[in-house]
Design a protein around this nucleic acid. Structure first.
Lengths: 192, 192
DNA sequence: GACAAGGGAGACCGATCTGTCTCCTCTGGC
DNA sequence: GCCAGAGGAGACAGATCGGTCTCCCTTGTC
């Protein structure tokens, strides 16, 4: 449905910039040019719309990251490409994912803090998928399962940490610094 | 003022758990047993109260972290003690800072995304103070300024990343894993 | 005892919230 | 041409929002 996508896209933009609870339904329908009736035809409630925006961003972000890494010649280059992508995101050089207001999943998790809440679990699921993607690339570099898991979690933690530093402190070089740390961690295991 | 502190404490608890925009003034006065008139005697607006909770949490969190690290015999132990403290926080073993709903400053930054907003700047200021604390301990380990800065930012990024992993994914071992990475980074520079 | 100040309880204001409903128009299939 | 359904515009309901105001009771000071 074209209108459904329009609603989700506009709602995501507003939720991402201002926060979920700060944005009302009326604002969403006003900016998307869709009638309130139509919104409630497609979504049972505001929360259902929130869930749809999380799903929308999950697909958008994941496919973007995958596109930015899958062309890499080897696992190590893919990990580095991940941080290069983050750097473009933070510095708003990437139109596909512009603008940058921190990580939507972190932001939404803050407003739906209860870990049993479906929306919070969607966010957790996205982060698990990201970890899985990193893990796949890491498996191309190392064979030892423990090494793969440890380094994957380290890279994921650096990714989250860099995103926070970029958003909260405004450190736009956070991705470059995180990349250097990841490089050091990988090199330490490759050259014994 | 006793009533002022009561208000700030209750407001912080509610904002932290449910988010700032999800909590109304009426809820805060109901739970703190303070009249609305009194609230507006102490704070010009809800936003002023939000700012007070950020300041309250900044002092509480910073003094807690400082207390948990300043007794360490050397800089390296202090950095490790930082991650031990995080581990207790995530697993709610620390009554001084119980409960855990992620980092308040990250959460609030998500709801006040504009980096020019005073509340967002308060959050940035807290993160800078944390980085400064880490930097002080790191200076006790290394003399080269570039090494100190690089490793301080790495530790700060690991701290933020671990907090996110613990909150969003529910990975309660995130601090332990981050500590291991920090240990590896420090050791690599100490034993050449 | 008189009296000012602080604060509690809550009415009240206009605005906005989520969500429902009515009325009307447009459009596509028959 | 006819008619069902989608969707636009927006009134409406009941609740809650941030914030102001009045009324009244307590308490401390003289």
């Amino acid at each position: 449905m074209e209108r459904r996508e329009q609603l989700v896209s506009v709602a995501f933009g507003l939720f991402y910039r201002y926060g979920v609870h700060a944005i009302g339904i009326n604002r969403i329908i006003a900016e998307s040019g869709v009638a309130k009736k139509t919104l409630y035809h497609h979504f049972a409630s505001k929360e259902a719309l929130v869930a749809a925006t999380v799903d929308y961003r999950d697909r958008q972000f994941s496919s973007w990251i995958e596109g930015r890494t899958q062309g890499a010649p080897d696992g190590q280059s893919a990990i580095f490409a991940l941080f290069d992508a983050l750097d473009d995101w933070f510095n708003e050089r990437e139109t596909l994912i512009y603008p940058f207001h921190g990580c939507y999943f972190i932001n939404v998790s803050a407003e739906f803090s209860d870990s049993n809440h479906p929306v919070h679990q969607q966010c957790a699921s996205h982060k698990r998928a990201m970890l899985g993607l990193i893990n796949r690339y890491m498996s191309q570099i190392f064979v030892d399962e423990k090494t793969v898991n440890t380094l994957s979690e380290a890279v994921a933690t650096l990714k989250e940490g860099a995103t926070v530093q970029a958003h909260v402190m405004g450190d736009l070089a956070a991705a470059v610094k995180a990349k250097a740390i990841a490089e050091e961690l990988l090199r330490a295991r490759l050259e014994p």
